[in-house]
Design a protein around this nucleic acid. Structure first.
Length: 286
DNA sequence: AAGGATACCTGAATGC
DNA sequence: TGCATTCAGGTATCCT
């Protein structure tokens, strides 16, 4: 599913619940999304959980890591003592999860942990992946190898400006290109461009310095808000306990076609850019 | 080399 | 009601 704020929310949850758990067994129910040997997990303890862009790394204490990308509809769900009482059963558009019934037909990998806990990888569209490999080899995985500088980490305003200057594709496509800069997906791209007052169809290299700075700050602002409220559960995203985030209540333009702009009251329009739904205010975003 | 279309999947919403 | 079409937060690959 998610973008930087959603994956970071997942990471925080995994970090909170998984540390020091031992992996007793691994069950792979959909071979296609899994690579590596399940035996490399068995008996290992979980040391830490890292995130690079929208990718997750669960580091074990035996020199191996579990690399996970949830793509559009992947979910990581943690269960302890088979008590799912805290889990939200809120209805979501794609997945109505009754976590108490896991594993269901969409649960593709099951990690049996010690203390009667489990970690489920669930993915309706099966686009995501789970890979077990030596920690030192993670950087060779194409996804991690091709990842550009990341928001809130190496990507500062100066590097952001350099990247925009070099690219003549539309600004929205450039900020969403994970090889150019890591973290922004469709929701936060739409909302960040709106806050900055920049039309998503503009060529990236046409932004002046003031606009570049405004956009950089706006993207960090919307993603910070996203993290603060636990991500956007407009579609299938949930946190590791199955609960919904709140960012959908703060959408500026994403999925707001036909609704009034919060600044000028004109209608929000929807177009397609790079094959993705693109929402903007034609009056405020020039 | 960069940019577009397409492919990977399934389910929900929409249209007739 | 049923059936077809469109769309969904991502990335990889093939083509021009």
């Amino acid at each position: 599913m998610p973008e930087l704020p959603e994956v970071e929310t997942i990471r925080l949850g995994l970090q909170k619940y998984l540390i020091d758990h031992e992996i007793e067994d691994v069950h792979v129910r959909l071979r296609r999304i899994f690579s590596g040997e399940t035996s490399m997990c068995k008996g290992a303890k979980i040391q830490r959980v890292r995130r690079f862009g929208k990718g997750l790394l669960i580091d074990l204490d035996n020199d191996y890591s579990i690399a996970i990308h949830v793509k559009m509809t992947g979910q990581l769900l943690y269960a302890r003592d088979f008590s799912f009482a805290k889990v939200s059963t809120e209805k979501l558009a794609i997945c109505k999860i009754d976590v108490g019934n896991l594993p269901d037909k969409y649960t593709h990998v099951i990690f049996d942990l010690d203390k009667k806990a489990k970690l489920f990888y669930r993915d309706v569209r099966q686009f995501g992946w789970v890979k077990v490999l030596l920690t030192k080899d993670v950087g060779n995985l194409p996804f991690f190898k091709n990842l550009g500088p990341e928001f809130f980490k190496e990507l500062d305003l100066a590097r952001f400006e350099q990247i925009l200057k070099k690219n003549k594709a539309t600004i929205k496509q450039v900020i969403m290109d994970q090889a150019k800069m890591a973290g922004v997906g469709n929701i936060y791209a739409n909302d960040g461009l709106y806050l900055a007052g920049i039309n998503p169809k503009r060529a990236a290299n046409s932004l002046n310095m003031k606009e570049q700075e405004k956009l950089f700050n706006s993207l960090e602002k919307v993603m910070k808000k996203g993290i603060e409220v636990g991500g956007a559960s407009e579609w299938s995203y949930v946190d590791v306990l199955g609960g919904a985030g709140q960012y959908q209540d703060f959408f500026q333009v994403y999925n707001q076609k036909g609704k009034p702009c919060k600044k000028c009251k004109s209608m929000i329009e929807k177009i397609t850019l790079g094959g993705r739904g693109t929402f903007y205010c034609p009056k405020c975003q020039k």
